[in-house]
Design a protein around this nucleic acid. Structure first.
Length: 452
RNA sequence: CAGGAUGUAGCUCAGUCGGUUAGAGCGCUGGUUUGUGGUGCCGGAGGUCGUGGGUUCGAGCCCCAUCUUCCUGCCCA
């Protein structure tokens, strides 16, 4: 038999990791609930018709497709095989693993809209799957923690997303940079340089500015067919700088002839004002007009969060999508949401050593014994300990005390209660602190009140 | 999905020009004045050298394929 192995890009999580992951999950969850979001869950798999076409062509390729059950090749003929894999796929696979939580959520909203209080605020913490090639901070199975609001255009939602990001990152101790842009600004930008309709190409190139530099960006755009005139009009974009307020002023001049662009600026400024009203400092929040994410569905605000001091992709991202439910037959429902990437947040915290030490949930008290008589004597004490709310266990085998202490040591149990014939006679049990090595003789009641 | 690197004990890694029986540290396990773990001392187990082919008298080492992990790109959390 071959050695067992994991599917590439997937991982097991042992107790140590789960404790830390739960710490992150709980932090995010508590913040979501504080802002009035309610939990839902959706299935791991969806119909491919729900998933396909929502994430662009790249996304369709990265979807994990599930082979139909039973004789999936029954109805195939030679022509199907010759037509290529894309057409073949739709004939042998009709389900897929979900790629994110937003699209299944949109499906959920459409299917349940008459029962949902609008605006509907939900959060969802589940794994998603992408058939990507794994590398640092990129997995094929990973968890997203999403919070979305649908059924309102209010920019208060955008502002609250900013506040939630701020709160979560602060609680986790992560130094971060939250970048905000607006799709309408990108649209305005393409109009302003006379390349209306080319905004996706433009945005994808500009997005790489801080990575490859101005020259390479212009090079790429020229290759994609942008005129020299358009590129020269783009020039002021690269010199936008200063405080967020100063950036707004420069941007207003740049987009003065684009109605859409000006609308984008107005929206952004409104978000800023709301955030300011909550007294949150602007220190970690930055207007970045080169930011481009989720171009296939975001229509308004775009968010991205990066951790400072760690070389890893964005740890959180989101934005507003005006028409996601439109593809499911219900138009006019606007939504805005945020997605926290737990796996990347974990990697960041690990690298920066941000996990609290005393986080481990473990046994507080282990009863050790010298034999069957002592074992039996300990049973009611064990019951008592648990009734008092002390996490306790009794070493289940009759074995040497050395082995029992070693078990406590490995499991990082701070206190052991040693029971021998002497202890049974006097009722004074030996309590040993495994960290200091100190021992004292106490009655069970004293021990439990000390630990409780 | 494109390009590059990688794989030897549970972990981190040595292993010469292709040459006999593949090593170390850590970990694991047993013992060490039998009622005491984490620090000492002594012993022990553990490897089809990622996998499958090929070249050779002979392969951990050379060639091909395949898989894993890591890096870059694209895209993203």
């Amino acid at each position: 038999m071959s050695k067992p192995s994991l599917v590439r890009g997937t991982r097991d999580f042992g107790p140590d990791k789960m404790i830390r992951r739960n710490f992150i999950f709980n932090t995010i969850k508590s913040v979501f609930e504080l802002y009035g979001f309610q939990p839902i869950e959706t299935p791991a798999m969806e119909n491919l018709s729900t998933l396909m076409g929502k994430y662009g062509e790249e996304g369709d390729q990265l979807l994990f497709k599930i082979l139909n059950s039973g004789n999936f090749s029954e109805k195939l003929n030679q022509t199907d095989l010759e037509d290529g894999y894309k057409k073949l796929t739709s004939k042998i696979a009709e389900k897929g693993l979900k790629y994110d939580l937003t699209v299944p959520f949109a499906r959920y909203v459409v299917m349940n809209r008459s029962d949902l209080p609008m605006p509907f605020k939900r959060y969802q913490i589940q794994p998603v799957w992408r058939g990507d090639r794994p590398q640092k901070g990129r997995y094929r199975e990973f968890y997203q923690c999403d919070a979305d609001v649908v059924g309102t255009d209010s920019l208060l939602c955008e502002a609250e997303i900013v506040l939630m990001v701020h709160e979560v990152m602060t609680k986790l101790g992560i130094d971060f940079s939250l970048k905000i842009n607006n799709r309408k600004v990108l649209t305005g930008l393409s109009e302003a340089i006379g390349a209306a309709g080319q905004e996706s190409t433009l945005a994808v190139a500009i997005d790489k500015l801080d990575k490859i530099g101005k020259e390479k960006v212009l090079e790429e755009l020229a290759e994609k067919g942008f005129s020299a005139e358009a590129l020269s009009k783009l020039d002021p974009v690269f010199s936008i700088s200063g405080t967020n307020q100063e950036k707004f002023e420069q941007l207003e001049i740049l987009l003065e002839n684009s109605a859409t662009g000006k609308q984008g600026i107005t929206e952004l400024k409104q978000v800023w004002d709301y955030v300011a009203a909550f007294g949150v400092s602007e220190k970690n929040i930055e207007l970045d007009i080169t930011l481009a994410r989720g171009l296939s569905y975001y229509t308004g605000a775009i968010f991205e969060v990066k951790a400072l001091g760690v070389q890893i992709g964005s740890i959180t991202g989101g934005g507003r999508y005006d028409n996601l439910t439109g593809t499911f037959g219900v138009a006019g429902l606007s939504g805005v949401g945020i997605s926290f990437g737990v796996d990347r947040i974990y990697d960041v915290m690990e690298e920066l050593n941000l996990f609290p030490d005393n986080q481990s949930v473990t046994t507080q008290l282990l009863f050790c014994h010298f034999g069957k008589t002592e074992f039996d004597y300990a049973l009611p004490l064990l019951k008592l300990a648990r009734e008092k709310g002390v996490n306790a266990e009794l070493y289940p085998d009759i074995s040497k005390i050395k082995k029992q202490l070693d078990y406590a040591d490995r499991k990082k149990i701070t206190y052991v209660c040693i029971i021998g014939s002497e202890e049974m006679e006097t009722g004074k049990l030996t309590l040993k602190n495994m960290i200091s090595g100190e021992q004292e003789k106490l009655e069970i009641g004293e021990i439990l009140s000390k630990l409780g």
